[in-house]
C-alpha cells in the first residue's frame, strides 16, 4: 500500500470518517470528529502506521490534512517517490 493511502486510511480509521469523504480540506477543530481527542487517536494511528514518534511540539504543527503530510515528510516518510 502506498504511503498516501496509508495516511488516508489512518484518518478514516482514527476519526471514523466515511471512506468517500474528501479529506484534503480537513483541519483540526473544524469538524466534530477531528477535535482534540480525535487528534490524539489520529496521532497514535499515524505513529503505528508509519513507525514514527510525534512529540508534543510537532503535534501542534499538525493542524490540517496537508500539514500532516508535510510533517511526516520531514520525518522521513516519502509520499512522492515510492
Amino acid at each position: 500500500m502506498k504511503n498516501i493511502e496509508k495516511y488516508r486510511n489512518a484518518f478514516i480509521e482514527a476519526l471514523e470518517l466515511d471512506e468517500n469523504e474528501a479529506l484534503e480540506e480537513l483541519a483540526l477543530g473544524e469538524s466534530s470528529e477531528w477535535d482534540s481527542l480525535g487528534h490524539m487517536i489520529l496521532i497514535s494511528t499515524l505513529e503505528e502506521a508509519f513507525d514514527v514518534s510525534i512529540d508534543a511540539d510537532l503535534m501542534t504543527e499538525f493542524d490540517s490534512y496537508q500539514s500532516g503530510i508535510d510533517l511526516l515528510t520531514r520525518m522521513g516518510v516519502d509520499f512522492v517517490n515510492e
Binding site: A14, L37, M40, I41, S44, T45, E48, D55, A56, M59
Partner: peptide, 19 residues
Amino acid sequence: LRDYIFIPLSKGKKKRSEI
C-alpha cells in the same frame, strides 16, 4: 500537564474510552 502527563499516557491509545 498536557505535555508531561496527558500526551505520554495517550500514546498508542486508539479508542476514545482509553483517552
